[in-house]
Each structure stands twice: as structure tokens, then as C-alpha cells.
């Protein structure tokens, strides 16, 4: 039996550097899906919160679809579907052309879609927690609607939505594991390759689990920091 320390070391015999690269891909994927998911989720929440019924139902259809589909299926739909669509389009211009969709981009799109539909719910319940008087106060001060949203509502909204968004971030981090199914070299895929080559599956999958756990812990620490930061105005009370 090979020494475990050699297996997880960095270098030609160990898998440490490959795993580390996988961790980077996992974190990069989660971090790059986050802004798109947040912005899209905020827009969907705005639509759900508007007085216009058609806009509300359009937003509700969106969340029903992406909250009802399994994340893995969404990923495959985006990965294969977009690829097919792009191929069809490309063949219109260049006959016989093929387009390959980057699995990182496909993962990013799918994860952003799923994240945004859940985030919209978080934002919506935060919207419900802000009293009408806050808007009225903003208008009474002569602020325009966008200004009221940006200067008065949004700071409170972030504070109210942050706990739910923090949970969603942890879920997003875990969901990145699915992209190993479409061949992106993330943490779980490297762990799988290492497990197959070295015949030590428990070591590598267990290690992968522990790394995910570590990422979750680091995130929780960061999130609680952000939470105290958003509550800095309340501290003196």
C-alpha cells in the first residue's frame, strides 16, 4: 500500500496539486455564478413585487420552472441544448461548422439560473419586511424612484435578505459539484480521477468532502463578518 502522505502530497507522485486546482475551479465557478444570480434574482424579485399582474406572473413562471427542475437536468439542458442551438445557428452561416460550449460557462449559466430563482424568493420576503413608509419617506424627501430604491430600500433589503442569501451561497457551493458530470475539472472530478488511479476511493472522496466542509466553514465565517458589517448601524442601540 502506498503511503497516504505521498498520495496527497504536492508533486509528481501526489495528487495535492491536482486537487488544489480542482478547488480553485470549484470556488471560481461559485464566485462567478454569484453576481449573475444575485442581479437576476433581484430583478425577478422586483418583478414579483411590482403592482403589474402580468409582470408578476411572468416572474412566477420563471421561478416555478427553475425551482421545479433538478439542478443536474438544468445543467444538461443548458450544456447540450445551448450547444445544439449554437450549432444550428452556426450552420446557417458556415455549413458543417461545430461549436463547442465551454463546460465552465454552461455550469455558470445553469447555476446562475437556479440561484436566481431561489434568491428572488429571499429578496421578495425581504421586500415584504420593509414598510411602505420607507418609500413614502424617500419620496417626501424629494428622491426619485430609482434614488429611493438605491439609497433607502436597498441597504435595508440587503440586511434583511442576507441570512437567506448566505444559505443560498452555501447551497451554490455544494451544487458546483454537479459540473463534474459535464466534464469540468472541479474538485470532485479530480477526486474521482485520483480515486480511480490510486484505488484509494475512500481517501480521496472523504478528502473532497472535508474540503467542501472547509469551504463551507470559511464561507460561514465570511458571512457572519458581512452580517456584522451590515448591522454596524444598529450596534450602539
Amino acid at each position: 500500500m502506498t503511503d497516504i502522505l505521498t498520495l496527497i502530497s504536492f508533486g509528481p507522485d501526489g495528487w495535492g496539486d491536482e486537487i488544489a486546482r480542482g478547488v480553485l475551479v470549484t470556488v471560481a465557478l461559485a464566485l462567478s455564478s454569484l453576481p449573475f444570480g444575485l442581479v437576476l434574482g433581484f430583478l425577478v424579485a422586483l418583478a414579483k413585487n411590482s403592482g403589474e399582474p402580468s409582470l408578476r406572473s411572468a416572474a412566477n413562471i420563471y421561478t416555478t420552472i427553475f425551482r421545479g427542475l433538478p439542478e443536474l437536468l438544468t445543467l444538461f439542458l443548458v450544456y447540450y441544448g445551448v450547444q445544439m442551438l449554437l450549432n444550428e445557428v452556426a450552420r446557417l452561416f458556415v455549413p458543417g461548422a461545430t461549436v463547442n460550449v465551454n463546460s465552465f460557462v454552461a455550469g455558470m449559466v445553469a447555476l446562475s439560473l437556479v440561484f436566481s430563482s431561489y434568491a428572488s424568493e429571499a429578496f421578495l420576503s425581504a421586500f415584504r419586511g420593509i414598510k411602505q413608509g420607507q418609500y413614502e419617506g424617500g419620496y417626501a424627501l424629494g428622491l426619485s424612484r430609482p434614488q429611493t430604491m438605491r439609497l433607502v430600500i436597498l441597504p435595508q433589503l440587503i440586511r434583511l435578505a442576507l441570512p437567506a442569501l448566505g444559505n443560498l451561497w452555501l447551497i451554490l457551493l455544494k451544487e458546483t459539484a454537479l459540473v463534474s458530470a459535464i466534464g469540468l475539472d472541479d474538485l470532485l472530478r479530480w477526486a474521482g480521477i485520483a480515486a480511480r488511479v490510486t484505488k484509494e476511493p475512500f481517501l480521496f472522496f472523504g478528502g473532497a468532502c472535508l474540503i467542501y466542509l472547509m469551504l463551507a466553514m470559511i464561507s460561514s465565517i465570511g458571512l457572519s463578518r458581512i452580517e456584522t458589517w451590515t448591522r454596524r448601524g444598529e450596534a450602539s442601540r
Binding site: K174, S180, P201, A208, C209
Partner: peptide, 8 residues
């Protein structure tokens, strides 16, 4: 992740 647990 549930996937990692299942693999494990």
C-alpha cells in the same frame, strides 16, 4: 454535496 456523499 450530496453527490460527494453518494460517491463516498
Amino acid at each position: 454535496p450530496l453527490l460527494a456523499q453518494t460517491f463516498l
